[in-house]
Design a protein around this nucleic acid. Structure first.
Lengths: 194, 194
DNA sequence: GACCTATACTTTGAGCCCGAACGGTTTTTC
DNA sequence: GAAAAACCGTTCGGGCTCAAAGTATAGGTC
């Protein structure tokens, strides 16, 4: 049971493991709980709402972004949905094959890709979103409106810190060292002989 | 930029899209921010700390659980790490191939799988965890200790609600209907003729 | 022992995930 | 106007993700 008991108990065990090295318990608890909450919410919404429409969380978020903002450039959708460009390509492929999303070229800039919902996509969102929002209310129902606002504000501080200072921090940590490439990723094509 | 501006603006657009259907803005904002924060924190920690040791977030969490709790049964590790048993199988395969984790049989129950860290795994955690915790402090550095405690408490309410009431809620929503099987997943083997 | 049920891990299939490399377009620079 | 730099979406590789199905063990009943 990934609950509070484990987290507070774990704190003592961590201290023991490190033998004296100071550990920031509150900070550790915040990060752990952010992640637990995100996973719990996602799982609940997928099973309670999205599953019956055969949507994943990410697919829903992408649809939502396009629904709300209207026809959008691909890079903006990826940004808003919080996924990489490469991931978006795959998600769009899935959604397009189901007839929920349409791709079209930008009239003046040949590099850009425009995304919009089909009629079926619009209809799906009108049907699914109210149920989705109802479950958002359910998962937060132990908090009153003030507590919700406070929680959202606190979380925003974390997001802002990473967005505004994260890059700088990462650079400082690496301190000039090369950024340690991922083990995975596309291999460089060997130059052809001849 | 997936920040606050987008979320509050989106609220108005949602209302317009649905034409009158009430939307719980505070709840929507909480869920959206939980997810944004989780993604931001994960990304920062992976790039700032884990990447140089060639660890993913999930791999680190699994190692952490085994490190803290000592030799553990597989199902408990999956539960604590917040991933499914099936996912754990794959993660353990990766970690075992790198010599960080050891699998062993339970002495009396042949179904159980025991997981423990190798010496190399222990050494890795002793080295990586302090850096990890330092970045946990960094991402939460706009909050003081009290705010951290409040934030963790609020998030715990969400987790508890889903854990204690989620199952019941999902059943009530489906209302006896079959749970809409996933499109993906293993296919049933066709019964052999003859 | 044969049967049945419960439990635990693995396999499978479809899909998401990132970031590096890539090919194409546009803009900038000289 | 040609080369260079910047930008965009796609491809690719390794890995994680789930749940359903499968395999194997354990514990009970007859």
């Amino acid at each position: 049971m990934p609950g509070q008991r484990s987290i507070t108990e774990a704190e003592k065990l961590v201290e023991a493991k490190l033998g004296g090295t100071p550990v920031s318990h509150e900070r550790m608890a915040v990060v752990a709980n952010i992640y637990r909450a995100a996973a719990a919410v996602r799982q609940h919404l997928e099973n309670a709402v999205l599953r019956s429409s055969d949507l994943t969380w990410t697919a829903f978020v992408v649809l939502w972004v396009i629904w709300i903002w209207g026809e959008s450039e691909s890079r903006h959708v990826a940004e808003e949905a919080g996924i990489s460009k490469g991931t978006l390509t795959g998600v769009i492929r899935t959604l397009e094959s189901r007839g929920l999303v349409r791709r079209s070229e930008h009239p003046s800039d040949g590099r850009l890709l425009l995304l919009s919902l089909t009629g079926e996509g619009e209809e799906l969102m009108r049907r699914v979103f109210p149920d989705f929002n109802a479950e958002e209310s359910f998962v937060t129902s132990r908090l009153d409106d003030d507590a919700c606002r406070a929680l959202a504000t606190g979380l925003r501080q974390v997001v802002l810190q990473v967005e505004e200072k994260g890059e700088e921090r990462r650079l400082a940590l690496l301190d000039g060292a090369k950024p340690a490439p991922r083990r995975s990723g596309r291999r460089r094509q060997a130059p052809r002989e001849g």
